[in-house]
Design a protein around this nucleic acid. Structure first.
Lengths: 111, 111
DNA sequence: ATATTTAATTGTAATATTGCAATATTACTA
DNA sequence: TAGTAATATTGCAATATTACAATTAAATAT
């Protein structure tokens, strides 16, 4: 064993978990926060801002891109990154639903 | 190398990433969703519901407990789990802030 | 008392992740 | 046409995660 058994879960759960998982590393969360602050941002800025090597930052950017959280556009010799609108909407809906469901009956826990 | 360099990130980022990371596995997300649906839930129910072994479920419950997402109370020979109110509030605030910041200037991306 | 049920722990194998040096690639610049 | 800058890729070592069998522990049931 050793690998996650994705096949026993619904596609939707796997997809949502993949999004949370991508946000679940401090370097990647720092990248997302930078994009929230500056709206767009070139890769090299992140490499200077975060104390990790260029290949490591590149790898984290790839993870965020693969789940659709960010997108990158080539601009000369740079790549300009920004958050992916549809993905943020998906996160909004999912977390919103979650919290609504929580409010409906979680105000007190009887255990 | 091989371990995440937590020391180069702010405590808050590490903490938030840890929460997302805990939600970033389909089994753990399934547990959280079950608790959202049923409010409380005994461990054995999860073991029967999710096609993973009892030790594996127990391990995932521990991860969720360690970051404070859930709490468990012993009830006879069972353990009754529920979501942790203060943690859910933290998630609400963080994601809320994130989405507000996004709305402020992310409606269109110029790259 | 003994058996059963529920859950946690321990140990371990398989696999994935993290991080970086070295290198490749691509585009601009002098 | 070099030379430089920004990024991606490859290969690898260190570490973490996932999953489970076996075992333990604690409470209940017979």
């Amino acid at each position: 064993m050793g690998a996650t058994k994705h096949e026993i879960f619904q596609d939707q759960i796997n997809e949502e978990a993949a999004i949370f998982n991508a946000l679940g590393h401090p370097a990647r969360l720092a990248i997302v926060k930078t994009l929230l602050t500056y709206k767009t941002c070139v890769g090299n800025y992140l490499t200077n801002e975060i104390a990790l090597s260029q290949p490591t930052i590149s790898q984290h950017l790839k993870v965020l891109k693969n789940v659709g959280i960010i997108q990158g556009t080539i601009e000369g010799k740079s790549v300009c990154y920004c958050l992916n609108h549809s993905l943020i909407e998906k996160l909004r809906v999912f977390v919103g639903d979650m919290l609504i469901q929580y409010d409906l009956h979680q105000s007190n826990c009887n255990c």
